[in-house]
């Protein structure tokens, strides 16, 4: 099993006609993702490398029965694209686009919670989600992850996710699903959503959670783990040495007013019984020990 995404998920790409969307759409298709096509209001009836273009997500759903969308459109168009996907009844909406205004994110996050509770939003500014061997939505290089579990991975950072799943693969450890929740201030899906799903997934036996500075998502996850997660969790938090008040690349990665430090996050996680590695390699080693003893 996997969480949120598997080989039966039918995905439409909003922004498939753009160069980035086309590039990753092709890579995702080659990986085996069940892609039904893309959307463009003026290019319906055409195709991108054999993938049909529909006028809208609603049209794509009517024609193909798709239930998920991946968004590659530029930042000004993201709010409209997310709402279009939700209105069309998509169960999973993955927003790869970076640079979406925080007020847009806060707005569509709350709009979805209120009016489209069955739509799961992932991102914006995330690498996507991969259930190795089954499907891959987004910009993760599929071959760096070994299929089959037993580890579920959730991370705020793209490259650190890649680093983590690759290190696991090098140790011959598989991944059920790897979810990149993204580095923005209002992620559609958070650590707790993923922890709950991994806890419920019988194939996932252990969880790797990669955090970074800023906000309090790791602290909230720690509390959740303490109360609800029975499976072993290994964590790494990036940004121990980040100076306060500076955004470290990600819009959400900032220590402000003494809040959101890596040290506080690691303390909270340790307190919840999580094994914390001081760097990605150490976290990988800790996970290898756990998997060996499963």
């Amino acid at each position: 099993m996997a969480i949120f995404l598997d080989e039966t998920t039918k995905v439409v790409y909003q922004g498939l006609t753009g160069s980035t969307g086309r590039y990753y759409g092709n890579l995702n298709r080659e990986y085996g993702t069940n892609i039904v096509g893309g959307t463009h209001p003026k290019k319906a009836g055409t195709d991108v490398d054999g993938m049909p273009i529909f006028a809208s997500v609603a049209d794509a759903k009517a024609e193909t029965g798709c239930n998920a969308s991946c968004i590659f459109v530029p930042p000004p168009a993201v709010k409209g694209a997310v709402m279009e996907a939700a209105e069309a009844g998509m169960e999973l909406v993955v927003v790869i686009t970076e640079g979406v205004p925080a007020h847009d994110e806060a707005w569509f996050y709350n709009k979805l919670v209120a009016d489209y509770p069955d739509t799961r939003l992932l991102g914006p500014n995330c690498p996507g989600i991969i259930s190795p061997g089954k499907a891959n939505i987004g910009i993760t290089a599929g071959h760096i992850a070994k299929a089959g579990g037993p580890v579920g991975v959730v991370s705020r950072s793209g490259t650190l996710t890649y680093q983590a799943v690759y290190e696991l693969k090098e140790k011959d450890i598989g991944v059920t699903t790897s979810v990149g929740i993204g580095g923005d201030p209002v992620p559609g899906t958070n650590f707790i959503d993923c922890l709950a799903a991994f806890e419920a997934d019988p194939e996932t036996k252990a969880i790797m959670m990669i955090g970074e500075i800023g906000g309090s998502a790791e602290e909230e996850a720690a509390e959740y783990i303490k109360a609800n997660v029975t499976k072993p969790v290994v964590s790494y938090v990036a940004g121990v040495t980040a100076p306060p008040g500076k955004k470290m690349g990600h819009a959400g990665a900032i220590v402000s007013g003494g809040k959101g430090t890596a040290a506080a996050k690691m303390d909270a996680l340790r307190d919840a019984g999580v094994q914390v590695g001081l760097n990605p390699t150490e976290a990988g080693d800790l996970m290898a020990e756990i998997v060996k003893n499963l």
């Binding site: 890649y162 680093q163 990036a238 040495t241 690349g249």
Partner: peptide
């Protein structure tokens, strides 16, 4: 480094 997370991690 490539990627914000990996860059932060590199500093660490």
């Amino acid at each position: 480094a490539n990627g914000a997370g990996l860059a932060m991690s590199t500093l660490d």
